[in-house]
Design a protein around this nucleic acid. Sequence first.
DNA 1: AATGAATGAGAGTTCATTCAT
DNA 2: AATGAATGAACTCTCATTCAT
Lengths: 200, 200, 200, 200
Amino acid sequence: MSAMTPVKRQARAERTRAALLTAAREVFEERGFLDAKISEICERAGVAYGSFYTHFADKDAVFAELIDQMLNGLLTVMRAEPLNGDGPAARIARANRAYLRAYRDNARLMAVFEQVATFSPAMRDTYLRAWGVFYDRQERAIREWQQAGLVPDDVDPRTAAVALATMIGRTAYTWYVLGRPHDDGDVEQLTRLYCRAIGM
Amino acid sequence: MSAMTPVKRQARAERTRAALLTAAREVFEERGFLDAKISEICERAGVAYGSFYTHFADKDAVFAELIDQMLNGLLTVMRAEPLNGDGPAARIARANRAYLRAYRDNARLMAVFEQVATFSPAMRDTYLRAWGVFYDRQERAIREWQQAGLVPDDVDPRTAAVALATMIGRTAYTWYVLGRPHDDGDVEQLTRLYCRAIGM
Amino acid sequence: MSAMTPVKRQARAERTRAALLTAAREVFEERGFLDAKISEICERAGVAYGSFYTHFADKDAVFAELIDQMLNGLLTVMRAEPLNGDGPAARIARANRAYLRAYRDNARLMAVFEQVATFSPAMRDTYLRAWGVFYDRQERAIREWQQAGLVPDDVDPRTAAVALATMIGRTAYTWYVLGRPHDDGDVEQLTRLYCRAIGM
Amino acid sequence: MSAMTPVKRQARAERTRAALLTAAREVFEERGFLDAKISEICERAGVAYGSFYTHFADKDAVFAELIDQMLNGLLTVMRAEPLNGDGPAARIARANRAYLRAYRDNARLMAVFEQVATFSPAMRDTYLRAWGVFYDRQERAIREWQQAGLVPDDVDPRTAAVALATMIGRTAYTWYVLGRPHDDGDVEQLTRLYCRAIGM
DNA sequence: AATGAATGAGAGTTCATTCAT
DNA sequence: AATGAATGAACTCTCATTCAT
């Protein structure tokens, strides 16, 4: 008869859900998607096996939520970068640094994201959408610079944006997921390649 | 005469093996690595289930062999490109075109290669080794051009090679595996970005 | 009240587990270890295939548990025999009868135990440990009788215990597993041989 | 046209067969019956896989032949023991020693024999027949001694023979297969137990 | 909401035996 | 006789998901 108030019940559920998300991230990061077991997620969350399904439809659903969380975080970081200031080169440098830092901080989940995108159509869509956002930002910037006469007209803004975003994005993967050694000079070089590529 | 016998036997075995390889490639391409079933490979090869294991230790082994085949093919194509001729820009254009064409021709197996490299340590090694070859070629070229005074000294040949190879390589993935639309103009743009990036 | 819940759950699990154990014993007894199939155990237990693995790690694990159960039962029976009473000969007679009866009652599982002990190192250990207990009891008894002057000093208690336990134990196998015909007179003879062998 | 003479052909076949038998014994001894692979037997014999079936019907058949060989050897050894001489006790001692030595020399194949006898009806028959021979010899001896007044009439020759043969036989298994430590004194004790058991 | 036992489909791998040459 | 490739039946164990309590 000592039924909990709805609020309390919700609070409890929320805690369980949060514990599962945290645990899931750990497990996915350690094992990859394929070898991540729901049972292990529950164990780490200190939650009964079946409770997982009270909060998530299935394995894909938790994963999708984790990825959404992460991508929102990335987006927030990217948006926090001032779009203008001390000139285009500095802005490119800042954006690249911000991206690489954010990627590094999420590298292990990123690795799993890339993995799942290779076999799950749903995750591939998410993947393409995320890149789309990234492309768009860079395209807009190049277009601006072109209008300001800083970038030559023979540069196609969309193609350049896609190619250079790809270069930066995949370099992050190569560094932080595949573990290729690199240093601060490489970041600088990357920015220089970027600038020169679009004729700056 | 009696020397014929072993040859004949080998010939039959060789045929079976080849049939299995062909069938395996088809199945991997259609289903991806994870959903490829040995049974389906055997069916398509018109071979009994157990015969698979006469020729390959396991699923990973056939896959590895297919990838080796493909990578050797790629390498051959790349090596067939004349290293010099009508100037660096033309050479870069040719190399990029050759790479993109070769990638496109193997796109479906490439997709699976990228997939497996995300969860199989052995395949990840192969993957890194393959990229290493690609990087090396570009690094050598840039170094030559630098010595010829065509590329400024502030370009670090290795870093530039890695970044630009990554750009080209991942663009191929984006086009032929992820299906991003593109045209001949994009190839041209890509080459232009490449050239400008290293200051040519 | 709420303490009831876990108990109930355990109760259901306990029932399933017990059903599996019973079924497993039947199947092992009928088919031997090698031809016993998990699927048949589950069918007889009226339980889904996968449920087997909820309760046991594998085939070896159920088997080990059955053997432990049986050996504990044997030990209990042997310990129930009064260690003294109407003289050594009567005591030996009683012990032999008790052993043979207990063996007979478990003959079919014993047969499988002996089988598995021939190829499973783990079960061989169990086997040796079980015999060790049996040897020890007989050694202690002989030693006592020696101290009481009932058994000559030139009998080595350990060797005699091992040899005579072996004789009794293997006779049980011969009778109840291999099916050699025998009668009550044989039991009597066996006891007489035992007594005379140690000089009583 | 240089067809080999029948004799030569037979000789070659005989060599192959012998090589297979030797190899089979090795493999069975190292791996036990269940884990012995025909392929390994052929490899060791330096013979093609399929040739095995030119000489033996199946795995059981080679094994049976090896066991027959071994049992004939044992029988020969036992028969070589003089049935009389320096008195019954010495004869028992000699027979026991001979048996234990012969068992030890074949211990590893004996182990496999015991193993296979637990699951192969055919091998169980062979096993029982072999023991039958052993029982008979001992029964005959006891009967003689009884007629000579050396053994009391209340000893049942058959039962005593079976029990004591079992004791000796299983002790050999315990020593040489299970690896129980033992020394020459134990052999002596065994003989003493034997003699006393039948009232000598 | 939480619990945790029950479910069952699914596929890889082994290896004795056969058989075409 | 010898060769060695081809055959295919058989069975275990995993684990996401369901469901009764």
